[in-house]
């Protein structure tokens, strides 16, 4: 082999080539890679989110009945590319270049039903009793006292309609016997009224909103944040959450 090497390379040359190769390779690849991987850097490393951190109104909690959950549409303002926010800050008189794209979430609200017998994820669902709706809601829809607010907050299930399996929208279905359940149309994931796993492929119960507050006016407000469990591959196990 040695005689084939017409232009023998010294150790110094080799080292030089190596160092220069790394520098030149870095100059070529790093900007392109960073350009492409911007979302990963922003979200997974810097922990930023595209979704607005403001409170969004869901609706009056008194609308939620005992037997069935109630669905509310919540639109979260979203900033994603287009540079609209930056341009607005620089020159507010310029009209927005694009129509705003809001992130639409469907939120299911139900009253917590007491768990009589704890189920086993993957084998059997919980045995539950009748959902407990705070009694004072029959009389008043607004003007809650702090005690009433905390009572409502404690007894409310605030669930995302995004199935914990692959993200299809789940719906409340009542069968012939009058028993209801959350059913996912894609692969038949089933959840009970508390949003806990009851059957099908989902690896956990429905996603719950973790940041919420009920105000004096009797309405619920939420932020875009979910109870992501470590080790269960949801759409993301990292904050801020994706659903």
């Amino acid at each position: 082999m040695a005689e084939l090497q017409k232009d023998p390379m010294t150790r110094g040359d080799f080292l030089g080539f190596g160092v220069m190769g790394v520098i030149m390779g870095g100059i070529i690849t790093v900007p392109a890679a960073a350009f492409l991987l911007e979302p990963i850097i922003n979200i997974d490393i810097l922990g930023q989110s595209n979704v607005s951190d403001d409170w969004q109104e869901v609706g009056p909690v008194a609308d939620v009945g005992v037997e069935e959950p109630e669905v509310f549409i919540v639109e979260f303002p979203l900033t994603q590319i287009y540079g609209d926010q930056e341009i607005q800050e620089l020159s507010p008189e310029v009209p927005r270049s694009q129509e705003e794209f809001d992130l639409t979430n469907a939120v299911w609200l139900s009253w917590k039903a007491p768990i009589l017998e704890q189920g086993d994820q993957g084998n059997s669902g919980d045995t539950i009793g009748v959902p407990e709706r705070p009694a004072f809601l029959d009389e008043k829809r607004e003007g809650f006292t702090p005690e009433e607010i905390s009572e409502v907050e404690e007894s409310l299930n605030i669930l995302s309609n995004s199935c914990a399996h692959l993200g299809c929208p789940v719906r409340w279905i009542v069968n012939a016997d009058g028993e209801g359940e959350f059913l996912c149309p894609c692969h038949g994931g089933i959840y009970d009224i508390n949003g806990n796993w009851y059957g099908g492929p989902p690896p956990r119960g429905m996603y719950r909103y973790t940041q919420f507050e009920v105000r004096e006016n009797g309405r619920l407000y939420i932020k875009h944040a979910y109870d992501v469990e470590e080790g269960i591959p949801g759409i993301s196990t990292q904050e801020p959450y994706v659903v």
Binding site: D44, N50, V51, L78, Q80, L103, I235, Q238
Partner: peptide, 26 residues
């Protein structure tokens, strides 16, 4: 979301494809 089930790189795959943390213009 199927991509998010990939071992170790799940969230990165998701965020790379989404271009953010939710489905949107990006």
């Amino acid at each position: 979301k199927i991509g998010s089930y990939s071992p170790f790189i799940g969230p990165y795959v998701t965020h790379f494809l989404l271009g953010g943390d939710v489905v949107g213009p990006a």
